[in-house]
Amino acid sequence: MGNRIDSHQHFWKFDPVRDSWIDETMAVIQRDFLPEDLQPLLKENHFEGCVAVQASQSEDETHFLLDLASKNDFIKGVVGWIDLRSENVEERLQFFSNQKKLKGFRHVVQGEPDDFMFGTEFRRGIQALKTFDYTYDVLIFERQLPAAISLVKDFPNQRFVIDHIAKPDIKSGSINSWKKGIEEIAKFDNVWCKISGMVTEADWENWKPQDLKPYLDIIFENFSTDKLMYGSDWPVLNVASDYKEVVKTLEDYISKFSIEDQNKIWFENAISFYNLSD
């Protein structure tokens, strides 16, 4: 598979109750976003495919994304949701295990108490993922990095990817405690990181590429180009930017890298992390 892969985007049929996180400040994304909306953007920016990631916490969401993936070839993989804390987690994983395009799972931990990832039930669920060779997407705020470090350390055989570079407060420019957490978590061989979701942590109205640069510098210093992958976080990015601008920001940043390293970031790492070539 040549060509770029967007390792992180979402689809939804907008539901104001279920999607209450999309508040009035995000009015621009209070509508449906479906494959026919994304496909032209992918094409225009030289992307061959994408990975659709859960946005709501239900098995219905997993079925919804798998259904879209079955009808759209360019959706190469799905990161779904199951209740990892459930007693029958193995049974649910077994149920989904015949779904070729289902590559991993995610829980919206950023909305949970800071000690959530220490929970026994949650950890039992993480343990079960390995049996089926599923990945786990770590969605956290910067303050939850210590819990994430403990998690990845205790499950050395589980593949983890950090979404949105662990959401540092780019808008305020604070960087030091986030930097310490990134330096620590990047030491683990089982951890990858998505270059995604940065513009929405910056000042939506006024961000510039140089606001992101110090954060990108730290990500690239700590994660090798073997461990980083591009994700747009479309359509959430629309509150602060547009698809093309987000792509261009990373293109400019890595323009001096070798073609080999650029290819790793644009598609090779996503393909190997999520087994997208199956």
Rank of each mutant, 00 (worst) to 15 (best):
V53Y: 11
E24K: 14
A27I: 14
F47A: 00
L41K: 07
S58H: 04
G77F: 09
Q39I: 08
Q54L: 03
E48P: 00
L68T: 01
K71V: 06
V53S: 07
P35G: 06
I29H: 08
P40Q: 02
L34R: 11
N45E: 12
D32T: 12
H63W: 05
F74E: 04
F74L: 07
K76I: 06
S70C: 04
D73K: 14
Q30H: 05
I22T: 09
A27H: 13
L42G: 07
N45P: 08
Q30D: 06
I75N: 09
I75P: 10
S70G: 13
A52G: 01
T62M: 05
D73F: 03
S58A: 05
P40K: 04
F74S: 04
V53C: 06
P40S: 02
D23C: 10
V28A: 13
H63C: 11
S56C: 01
A69R: 05
E36W: 00
E48A: 10
D67W: 03
E36R: 06
F74I: 10
D67F: 02
C50M: 01
D37M: 09
N72W: 08
A27R: 14
D60S: 08
Q39L: 15
D32N: 15
S70F: 03
A55M: 12
D60Q: 14
D23F: 14
Q54V: 07
D67R: 14
E24I: 07
I75Q: 10
I75Y: 09
L66Y: 06
Q57E: 15
D37W: 12
F74N: 05
L66M: 06
I75H: 10
I75R: 11
N72F: 05
N45M: 08
A55E: 00
E59C: 00
D32F: 10
C50A: 15
K43R: 13
L41N: 03
F74M: 05
D23A: 13
I75S: 09
R31V: 04
I29D: 05
L38S: 03
D60T: 11
R31K: 15
A55D: 00
V51A: 02
D32K: 13
A27Q: 13
F64P: 01
Q54T: 08
E61C: 00
A52L: 04
G77E: 07
A55W: 01
E48N: 11
A52E: 07
L41Q: 03
L68M: 14
Q30N: 10
M26F: 03
F64N: 06
H46Y: 12
S70V: 12
N45I: 13
S58R: 05
L34P: 06
Q57T: 10
S56G: 02
L68Y: 13
E59Y: 00
S70H: 09
Q57W: 01
T25Q: 09
L42M: 14
G77M: 08
D60I: 07
N45T: 10
Q30P: 08
E61G: 01
L41H: 03
M26W: 09
Q39T: 05
L42H: 10
L42V: 13
T25N: 11
K43V: 15
S58T: 15
H63Q: 14
F64H: 11
S58L: 03
T25F: 00
V51Q: 05
T62P: 07
L68V: 01
E36G: 00
G49M: 03
I22D: 01
K43D: 11
